[in-house]
């Protein structure tokens, strides 16, 4: 926590609303550990690598350390176990640049007819089969 600059990024990201800034120190802390999922969102989101996590006190003995470094296309993990063994893994996280997804509004506008049919956007192309499967109800009510 010494490295914390009080930038609020973990406060913004924590899905449980439990990372807050201590007004006296200007640094972030977990206000409600009993509502923490150990999701590591705060750890991954911190630009200063300031957040340190240890396992829940009710079943996790001391002596372990799980840390990560996340880049644009991969994440590297380092797992230090009680007893001293260390494992390191690197996994891909994304195959395209961040911020490269286009709004669906950039696609040609749909027809009124399409709006009343069963196809969703980009179908049937993105289904990669010729047509959307259907099984007409054996007991279908007359359409009004």
């Amino acid at each position: 926590m010494d490295k914390c600059k009080g930038c609020m990024e973990c406060v913004r990201l924590c899905p449980s609303d439990i990372m807050h800034i201590d007004p006296r120190l200007g640094k972030a802390f977990n206000i409600e550990p009993s509502m923490c999922w150990e999701c590591f969102t705060c750890v991954k989101g911190c630009p200063e690598a300031a957040v340190d996590v240890r396992g829940y006190a009710d079943f996790a003995p001391f002596g372990h350390h799980v840390t990560q470094q996340r880049a644009a296309d991969r994440i590297a993990w380092r797992i230090e176990s009680r007893g001293g063994s260390v494992r390191e893994f690197v996994f891909p996280i994304r195959t395209t640049p961040w911020d490269s997804i286009a709004s669906p509004a950039t696609a040609p506008p749909p027809t009124t007819e399409a709006a009343h049919g069963e196809l969703l956007s980009f179908e049937p192309d993105y289904l990669a089969v010729e047509a959307l499967p259907t099984i007409p109800s054996k007991r279908a009510a007359p359409t009004s």
Partner: peptide, 8 residues
């Protein structure tokens, strides 16, 4: 993963 690491 943390649990495994902590419990060795």
């Amino acid at each position: 993963a943390v649990t495994w690491a902590a419990q060795g």
